[in-house]
Design a protein around this nucleic acid. Structure first.
Lengths: 357, 357
DNA sequence: CGTTGAATTGACAACGGTGTCAATCGTGAG
DNA sequence: CTCACGATTGACACCGTTGTCAATTCAACG
């Protein structure tokens, strides 16, 4: 098992060593050099003449040679494995993150090990320690909430395991991260609602542990204040990014008597929950009430009415985080380039927000 | 990188070899045996006295020893890597599949490499070949459509790469698979609609390449016929399991003049699309029209009204497929137990289906 | 043309396990 | 009590690569 032969058409009729699962020795023999030289070429090391490099690369191609990861990892200090740690949750988000990471990693010769962890539960730290101990990862990619969990970051720093983060924070420079300006997007979204004539705008906060929750809320508050609208305590409820918390938040807002004409949920799942509550109360959206979300998850387009929301470039975020991680793996302590990136957020106008009644 | 030390509290105050990243040699020394014996214990081989086994296991525990996967894989013939091949699509389904596979694999000492492939595109076969060639997998798990793609199965059989499938087919015994009786569930769901008084029941078919599409459709037809209801061609439209195809199917059914009072979509995404179309036409669901789906995807609960659907035990399906795969990896050609499993499907009654108007 | 030092290349020992096969142990038969 | 034989254990080569360090080559210089 695991030993694979793949059919292969060799153009030339000459006897060729190219069959399957060739090793570095085959390549060396074919190129007439030592295996160490082949190794140098594979690893793109300096001090190899251009002629030699070409000759070896040619042999590699002719053999259809792929270095054995186990052997490399055993002999070298690298495992070529990177881990993706995330909370078991929103599948749309995670699928996109995975896609972004995979696209970049595979192309760079790294394999990805996904590691979903139970939600919330502070007991996941020892679990993570165990995983890290067992898996021999070269580095990891962290998504919220893990990317903002100081204890975890400390742990990773402690064992000197490189990591890159996807996060909503902008001020922590301890390690590479990719981010979006959630504050600004929430600010703009709120302005948009205000421009539609809404004054009494409800807000459902995200999970308090997530930086994004804080940022988005702050953006909402800032926009309200910028327009001189007082944010009544009745306007904001605490959610946790889950659908059911969106239902609860929506119910609270709808029944509070605050008379909100719009609800800004901190993510699409909660917006879906609020939407459901509005429907249950026979409200017409957006005529009676506007509801907007954040993330542009898959569900946003599938709801009725389709959600006006903020598009997060999730896949790109993950790809960039992978890029940062892998480049920091390569530089290995050299002077590293900027290790933060900021990606733009875009407001997507669909059907769920309209003029205030 | 990748070299990790984990803090560890040793109970006894005696000098102990237990620190971090111990190797088989450390264990052997501590237990006072040869490394080969330790290897035997790790691999659960026969011909080791119980006393010896206990002694070694104790040493392993005291060292906090974890075998190095690269070394094992280099020396042995196994890589301890299994691949999961799937079409890039429905994230809810995939996330659950991953969870099921991970839960089983990790516990059995295997790591999972996920491999999403572009949808449809027949050119993925060479892509898959490349992946298999590079990744040195011990086995793979296939989900639809891959699990039903004869060319791919032939390829895997050809290179003798073990695989297990999650599929809706029941008659192909070429290799291990886990399945559900989609026909029966569709039959029951249709009966349920009929029992609610519906006669003119529309049906949106799934992607023709998927066996599940055929099975579900056949179940629908059988139930209609069993009740003596003619299936007018106007009742059924072709979809492809995507949301937009559900919209199109819903539109066709709603506007055809066939006067359907219920729509049975072959999956939840398409049901969501049909639901959206119904909303757009200001129909009240389920008063004016009933809409049901299949799968019990995440979205089913989040829609308004929540979808009556068929629950697929996706996670369990994947876990069982992993179990079959790993056990076939172990037996390595021995007399293997039954290599097929059938899991039950359950109708989940929510809000989107009601009595015929 | 010999010398020097840097650039290039190669020989060989790891890396941490498993496979093979020989050595040792224990037990019942003779 | 000795011997044969199966069960148990160990010694050692080897898996395919990288790291180390020595050998060789090359170019420029005196």
């Amino acid at each position: 098992m695991g030993r694979i032969k793949i059919g292969h058409k060799s153009g030339a009729a000459t006897a060729s060593a190219s069959d399957a699962n060739s090793t570095i020795k085959d390549v060396a023999r074919l190129a007439g050099v030592s295996i160490k030289t082949v190794s140098r070429v594979i690893n793109n090391e300096a001090n190899v003449t251009e002629a030699m490099r070409k000759k070896v690369q040619d042999a590699i191609r002719r053999c259809d040679y792929v270095p054995n990861r186990s052997a490399r990892s055993l002999a070298g200090r690298r495992s070529f494995l990177i881990g993706l740690f995330y909370e078991r949750q929103n599948s749309s988000y995670i699928t996109r993150i995975q896609a972004g990471v995979l696209a970049y990693c595979r192309q760079e010769g790294y394999e990805l090990l996904i590691h979903p962890f139970g939600r919330g539960n502070e007991s996941v730290l020892p679990e993570i320690e165990k995983v890290v101990h067992r898996s021999n990862l070269d580095g990891v990619i962290l998504t919220p909430y893990f990317s903002e969990w100081v204890q975890l970051l400390d742990f990773l720093d402690g064992i000197k395991l490189p990591y890159a983060r996807v996060t909503a924070v902008r001020d922590d420079l301890r390690s590479p991260f990719v981010s979006c300006d959630d504050f600004d997007a929430a600010f703009r979204m709120t302005k948009y609602l205000i421009a539609l004539g809404h004054r009494r705008i409800g807000f459902i906060k995200g999970h308090p542990r997530h930086n994004s929750a804080t940022e988005r809320h702050a953006g909402y508050v800032a926009a309200m204040e910028a327009e001189g609208i007082a944010v009544s305590p009745d306007f904001v409820t605490q959610g946790d990014y889950s659908f059911v918390s969106g239902e609860a938040g929506g119910r609270a807002l709808l029944d509070s008597g605050a008379g909100v004409t719009a609800i800004f949920a901190s993510n699409d799942d909660m917006a879906a929950g609020a939407l459901r509550m509005a429907h249950q109360r026979k409200l017409v959206i957006p005529d009676d009430i506007s509801i907007v979300g954040f993330d542009d998850a898959d569900i946003a387009r599938k709801l009725w009415p389709a959600l006006t929301t903020v598009r997060q470039p999730v896949r790109e975020l993950a790809a960039q985080a992978s890029a940062l991680l892998i480049s920091s793996l390569r530089e290995d302590g050299q002077e590293q380039e900027k290790m933060q990136r900021l990606l733009p957020l875009e407001i997507i106008i669909r059907e769920s927000a309209g003029r205030a009644p």
